[in-house]
């Protein structure tokens, strides 16, 4: 990324930082931008996984597992901070699980397996009423507590979750950026580009795939955990919604696969356009930007998809 990119990103970050006081801590706008930031977090975590060549169609599973994990912990009396962290852990474990189970699947078949995985969790949440509350879900999730050592306006109500979601986004971008510069990134790229060749060079693919899944699941789980503390309820069709699988994929491919900031920027842009510009005027079609973005990627940015797609060749040459 060039210098201009960094300057732009810095400006966006600064604007996001001062947005709450500028809007007078307006609860609706803060909620809206927090959600966009959470989508940015999930989209970046999706992109991190795609960087290792693993295309997921089931991030709703990790988001929802994080949501349910955090909700249950919070309702069980743990502090919301701990609960959200636990949600992240549950998301990571759930992601590592499907990665191990589907170790032999690649490309489109892995994608289908993750899609089924998310649907399976949705089904479990619907049916395991004793724990999940069934279709009605769980209510009464407490909000984030305020922090005594900070100005009260900045941690109260929507502002607290706003800054936490901003922090999640910054952290996931920082982690991804660190990976890109480290041997982990080198291994991810090698596994993505040529798994067999990587193996011949000493890179055993499976642990790296599981690591990529676990990291991606961790951040999606954290986002899910925070989300349920924002909306204060958790339902199967809310957090295991396919929406949370499709949108990160759309945002990451549209924003630029394998780029550090693209998915987050696309998430903010697409989500805010959809909610601020379209929702008030043509509510029925407010999700149009996602479909258009996707079609644009396929039609006009063929590199956008082809760049990421692994396995252009099959079998040993």
């Amino acid at each position: 990324m060039g210098r201009r990119g960094w300057i732009g990103a810095g400006l966006v970050a600064a604007a996001l930082l001062v947005l709450p006081p500028l809007t007078g801590f307006h609860p609706y706008y803060l909620y809206l931008v927090s959600t966009a930031l959470l989508f940015g977090t999930v989209a970046t975590s999706w992109n991190l996984l795609a960087y290792a060549g693993q295309i997921s169609f089931g991030h709703a599973a990790f988001f929802g597992l994080g949501g349910y994990g955090a909700a249950l912990a919070s309702l069980g009396g743990l502090s919301p901070w701990v609960a959200i962290a636990l949600g992240g852990a549950v998301g990571a474990v759930g992601a590592a699980g499907i990665s191990l189970a589907s170790a032999r699947l690649r490309g489109a078949y892995l994608a289908l397996a993750t899609l089924a995985y998310a649907e399976i969790w949705r089904g479990i949440a619907h049916n395991w009423t004793a724990v999940s509350g069934g279709g009605a879900g769980l209510i009464g999730i407490p909000p984030l507590p305020t922090l005594a050592w900070l100005p009260v306006d900045f941690t109260r109500g929507r502002a607290g979750s706003y800054y936490l979601s901003l922090a999640f986004l910054v952290v996931v971008i920082a982690v991804f950026g660190g990976i890109l510069r480290s041997r982990v990134g080198l291994a991810f790229a090698a596994v993505r580009e040529e798994e067999e060749r990587a193996s011949l060079l000493g890179v055993r693919a499976l642990p790296w795939k599981v690591l990529a899944f676990a990291l991606s699941g961790l951040f999606s789980g954290l986002a899910g955990g925070l989300y349920v503390h924002m909306v204060r309820v958790v339902e199967p069709d809310l957090v295991f919604n396919r929406y949370f699988s499709i949108l990160p994929l759309v945002m990451a491919t549209f924003g630029g696969l394998h780029t550090l900031l693209g998915p987050a920027m696309a998430a903010l842009g697409l989500y805010l356009v959809s909610e601020l510009l379209l929702h008030p005027y043509v509510p029925a079609f407010h999700q149009l930007p996602y479909a258009l973005a996707l079609i644009a990627v396929v039609l006009y940015l063929p590199g956008g998809l082809a760049g990421l797609l692994p396995g252009k060749r099959s079998g040993a040459a």
Partner: peptide
């Protein structure tokens, strides 16, 4: 490989670095 199988989208440098790093 008879038909080269590099990490196509990585730099030449990174292609060589993989083996050095993970051997």
């Amino acid at each position: 490989f008879q038909i080269a199988r590099p990490f196509a989208h990585s730099t030449v440098f990174d292609n060589v670095l993989v083996g050095i790093t993970f051997r």
